[in-house]
Amino acid sequence: MNSIQKLSLLILMVSLPLQGCGNSTNTKSMEYSTQDSTSLLKVVSERNVERITEILKSQPDLEVKDQKGRTALMLATYNNDNTIAEILMVSGADVNAQDAMLNSPHLYAGASGYLEILKMTLSHGARFDIFNRYGGTALIPAAEKRHLEVVKLLTKVPKYPIDHVNNLGWTALMEAIVLGTTGETQVAIVDVLIKAGADVNIPDNDGITPLQHAKKRGMTTIAQLLKDANAHE
């Protein structure tokens, strides 16, 4: 064997273990990342901010879901945890990812009156063409559940679909009347919707108008607001 052949053999022998180590490192790195993605769900549920921050340094998959289809951000939203929700959103978590119930961080925050998380979702790419299990936007249940500040916020968002009709045939205005309770807050919500340009004459699936529903439910003040906005029966 000449000197050139010996040198080639030596290079080959040295390179083989290095390649093996490289593959092992990649495998460990992948396992570590996968493990951290799963661990992230656990520590978010435990509200362990310090551990969350530590795990995020390894850049785990933020969209890993639990058995109910919930991402880490969805869990933080269910917990109404502003701090953790913000950390995850800043790290790139998807505010539109839906779980098995078709809730997303944006939709659930709006429906539940979690104003701060809702504001953050609007700043991190919330979409208005993704709907809840009733085919509705965040505004529709917010209008029903007397979340006045949420209604004020969403009706000021440019191009927000105020008149979107859900699977039940109701707009936010209609749901505020049909399912909403009587009282000053509900009157204020209807007033906000009307002033934001909500169509006061979109009927439900049975052809009944908002004004007809308001009269039937004895909502005198709301009925007058509708009349003042040129609502018809």
Score class of each variant (00 low, 15 high):
residue 101 M to T: 11
residue 102 L to D: 12
residue 67 Q to G: 11
residue 43 V to K: 00
residue 66 D to E: 12
residue 134 Y to P: 00
residue 145 K to R: 14
residue 111 A to T: 08
residue 129 D to A: 10
residue 155 T to F: 09
residue 215 K to T: 02
residue 200 V to Q: 14
residue 37 S to D: 04
residue 144 E to S: 11
residue 92 G to K: 09
residue 64 V to W: 04
residue 1 M to K: 13
residue 46 E to H: 03
residue 67 Q to D: 14
residue 214 A to T: 02
residue 8 S to A: 13
residue 179 L to M: 12
residue 115 L to C: 07
residue 10 L to V: 10
residue 202 I to N: 04
residue 109 A to N: 04
residue 57 K to D: 06
residue 211 L to C: 06
residue 207 G to Y: 07
residue 155 T to K: 04
residue 22 G to V: 02
residue 22 G to W: 13
residue 122 L to N: 02
residue 175 E to P: 00
residue 3 S to R: 13
residue 163 D to T: 04
residue 39 S to T: 10
residue 204 D to G: 10
residue 182 T to N: 11
residue 155 T to A: 08
residue 44 V to Y: 00
residue 224 Q to W: 01
residue 56 L to E: 01
residue 207 G to V: 05
residue 70 R to K: 14
residue 107 L to N: 09
residue 29 S to Q: 14
residue 88 L to P: 00
residue 167 N to Q: 13
residue 14 V to A: 12
residue 86 E to T: 03
residue 60 P to S: 05
residue 116 E to N: 15
residue 209 T to Q: 02
residue 189 I to A: 09
residue 99 D to M: 03
residue 56 L to V: 02
residue 171 T to F: 09
residue 69 G to M: 02
residue 13 M to L: 15
residue 153 L to M: 11
residue 54 E to A: 07
residue 90 V to C: 00
residue 212 Q to N: 07
residue 38 T to A: 07
residue 11 I to L: 15
residue 210 P to Q: 08
residue 98 Q to A: 12
residue 231 A to H: 08
residue 187 V to F: 11
residue 98 Q to E: 03
residue 200 V to L: 10
residue 188 A to H: 01
residue 2 N to K: 11
residue 107 L to W: 09
residue 45 S to G: 14
residue 128 F to V: 01
residue 147 H to V: 06
residue 131 F to H: 12
residue 193 L to N: 07
residue 177 I to F: 08
residue 27 T to M: 12
residue 228 D to K: 15
residue 164 H to E: 10
residue 133 R to T: 11
